[in-house]
Design a protein around this nucleic acid. Structure first.
Lengths: 148, 148
DNA sequence: AGCAAGTAATTAACATGTTAAATAAATGCC
DNA sequence: GGCATTTATTTAACATGTTAATTACTTGCT
């Protein structure tokens, strides 16, 4: 059996845990959960997205996203409306209030990124991001092949 | 606001998702959950561990581990006993039955790793593992400093 | 020795995620 | 054009994770 220390999923989990530990205090202060933050942040970059597309972009299952959006909508941080051509679609967008939350967080977030990059080293950080990106792409196409 | 695409936590999550997609069918076939698998695998390398130490090693909070161990113990895949010197401690070990499950999984697991390494590329894979390891170490010490 | 403070693990209450079934609408086939 | 099939999302039932409170024990102080 391959030693635990060589487990890729565990390393990814531990790295994520270590990174999130730095962001959690700011999320708490801003009053958003980790997942709500992912939603708001993704919406900042787009005018209006379909729920399913959003779910894929932020690695959430649709049922989870459904509940999270219900909360965000209740708090007026996002808007939802039905598609015009295709009425099954739910089109989601961020409100000014939601954007304000993101902008408040953004300052803290950038500070943390600076600290992280300094701790990890600028070069190592960039290499890690690139390696991850490449691995994700390759793995996704491997998985895609396996699905048919 | 930094684009979503440059989010380190999200990249780590996506990479983990992509990797786990390959292992999940085997876990399902072996009848263990992702977390049970982490426990069994960690125990394979050690004679007997304290619950807290185990939790840290596999990135699980103690209360979660507590429940998971209750199930594993009921199924006779692990043994638990109290410490002798320190009776607060719970010492956990794997049973032969547990070891059998791990060994069955191990074959499939190694095959998947081979496929993953081939897809990602041997060099890129090794680089990713090293970068992750280095980042985890650096981030942990950054977090440790922040705690005091 | 006796008690306050700290530590390891568990339990309880709650939040979140997941899988499967239900709903609603679009597409394609005859 | 009507009906079976597929697609997008939601709801429901359940499993899992999380935080805070509890239990049981140890340690250190006097």
């Amino acid at each position: 059996m391959r030693p635990l220390h060589q487990s890729l999923p565990l390393k990814l989990l531990m790295a994520r845990e270590a990174v999130m530990e730095r962001f959690r205090p700011h999320l708490l202060a801003a009053g958003v959960t980790e997942q709500q933050w992912r939603v708001l942040r993704a919406l900042c970059e787009r005018e209006e997205v379909e729920a399913g597309e959003l779910a894929d972009a932020i690695c959430l299952k649709l049922p989870s996203l459904s509940r999270i959006m219900a909360d965000l909508s209740r708090d007026r941080l996002i808007n939802r409306r039905n598609g015009v051509n295709d009425k099954r679609l739910r089109l989601v967008s961020i409100t000014p209030k939601g954007r304000a939350v993101v902008e408040k967080m953004a300052r803290h977030s950038e500070k943390e990124y600076a600290q992280i990059q300094e701790a990890v080293g600028a070069k190592a950080y960039a290499a890690l991001m690139d390696d991850l990106e490449a691995a994700i792409t390759k793995l996704n196409s491997l998985n895609q092949d396996a699905r048919d």
